[in-house]
Amino acid sequence: MRDLYGELKLTVSASESEIKKRLPYVLSKSVRRDIEYILLNPNRRLVYDRNWKLMNIIGELRGSLRLTKSDYWGEEENIAYLSLPDQYPPLLDQLKILPSS
């Protein structure tokens, strides 16, 4: 997933006017088009921000669990299996995206 805020050298809390000010400094036309399409539309930006946060949490989980193909992933009779460490990190709690009912 492309870091659109990183391309602008802004944070997630940047306002629409800050995004518009930084847009001319983006060299790639395709990145500029993506930024305009996603970050300048409130609904698309909301979805992008939520997905970006989720992808970062997943990345942190993978790193803290040391989930690399060679360490924890294997095949047994063509069936993939996963061997996790004994302790799960507190990041698993952050995966609760939907409000509890």
Rank of each mutant, 00 (worst) to 15 (best):
L67G: 11
K69P: 04
L4E: 03
P89E: 11
S70R: 15
Y25C: 05
L84H: 10
K9Q: 13
L82H: 00
I35P: 03
E18R: 06
S13Q: 09
I19N: 07
L54S: 05
L95H: 09
P89C: 04
D49T: 04
I38F: 04
P42A: 04
N41K: 12
W52I: 01
E16W: 06
E60A: 15
M55T: 06
K29I: 11
D49P: 02
E18W: 00
S101L: 15
S100G: 04
L82M: 03
K9S: 06
M55I: 11
T11F: 02
L10Y: 03
Y81S: 14
K53I: 08
S70K: 13
Y25L: 13
D86K: 05
N78C: 00
Y88R: 11
L61D: 12
G74K: 14
I35L: 05
Y81G: 11
I58C: 12
I97M: 14
Y37N: 13
R50E: 15
A80Q: 14
L4W: 02
S15F: 04
L82D: 02
L4P: 00
Y5T: 01
S17N: 12
K29A: 14
V31Q: 02
N41T: 05
T68R: 10
Y72E: 00
L65H: 03
R2K: 15
E60R: 10
G6H: 02
I19P: 04
S28G: 00
E7G: 07
R44K: 15
R62E: 11
L23V: 10
N51Y: 11
K9I: 02
V26I: 10
T11N: 11
L65S: 03
N43V: 15
S70L: 08
K21H: 09
W73M: 15
S17R: 05
R45T: 00
I79C: 08
Y88N: 14
Y25M: 10
W73T: 11
S83I: 10
K21P: 03
I58K: 04
V26C: 05
Y72W: 05
P89V: 07
L27I: 05
E36G: 06
L27K: 15
D93G: 13
M1Q: 07
L27G: 04
